[in-house]
Amino acid sequence: MDAGEWCLLESDPGVFSALIREFGCTGAQVDELWSLDAENFEPLGEVFGLIFLFKWDGKKETASKGKVVNDMEHENLFWAQQVINNACGTQALISILLNIHGNKITLGEELENFQNFTIGIDGESKGFALSNAEGIRKVHNSFSKQQLFELEEPKNQEKELPYHFVSFVPVNGRLWELDGLQKGPIDHGEISCENWIDAARPVLQTRMAQYQEGEVHFNLMACCEDRLVRLEKKLAAETMDFPKSQIQMEIETEKEKRLTWDKDNARRKHNFMPMVVEILKQMAEKGNLVSQVEKAEERTKEAIERRKKLKAAKQ
């Protein structure tokens, strides 16, 4: 990958949580949200921001009902214009992390330097600063879909529309939508309820309904406080046996989830070329490589037929 290029990022909570960690930031993680129901937010503890991801139709206009404002008029609000397409996952995540105020997380040197560098400059300049942030890009690119070596992208990937990530955060008592494709942050008004999620819910519900109608794929993730830290604290404060064992179980579940994430990430970063070649060599030695490839040919034909039928059915 050329210097200056950003890879496409998988929208996976394990990837985003690892990004946070590898930026050197502590106190936050990312989890998938299956719905906007209050019970889904409960295990998350404090939610710092939401990442909304949808298939981008290539249009710059937003479907948002909020008001685009001038970011320079809002102190403490970090918003960056999107200068590079593929960086938008990292941009959405950093837009949340840099909008968490009150020492709830530790940004770490990399993000602190970036934050200090971007104080007082406008959103467009912030976007350029991010595109040039070497350390951030390095971490981002380490999650590139593992490449065997420098390959042309498969053609069907080129045709696929990219995903776009936007974030929602509460800052200065107002709900903000941070979309790097707009001219500024989007103001969704004052948060009048105690929990900002209750203010964000109707906004997101409206958006989701729109996308559902248009059959646009979307997905929602939450950036929240580090669950292990929260559970350990809770465990230390608990004196009764039964709640204690409950919390311990939750801790085990979280640890298992993180191990799965780590394994997925190790595989994402691994070069599988030697293994694939070894598999083919072993098949050749067993004398069934040719028959396997014939089977593959049959399967390829069947897949093409299926796609044709599907296409015909859609028209």
């Binding site: 065997l148 390959l151 498969p154 997925d264 994402r268 691994h270 599988f272 070329m273 293994m275 694939v276």
Partner: peptide
């Protein structure tokens, strides 16, 4: 069984 391995075989196949 992982999607990452599957992706690798697909990249190999394309190449």
């Amino acid at each position: 069984h992982s999607p990452q391995f599957k992706q690798a075989t697909q990249a190999f196949s394309h190449a």
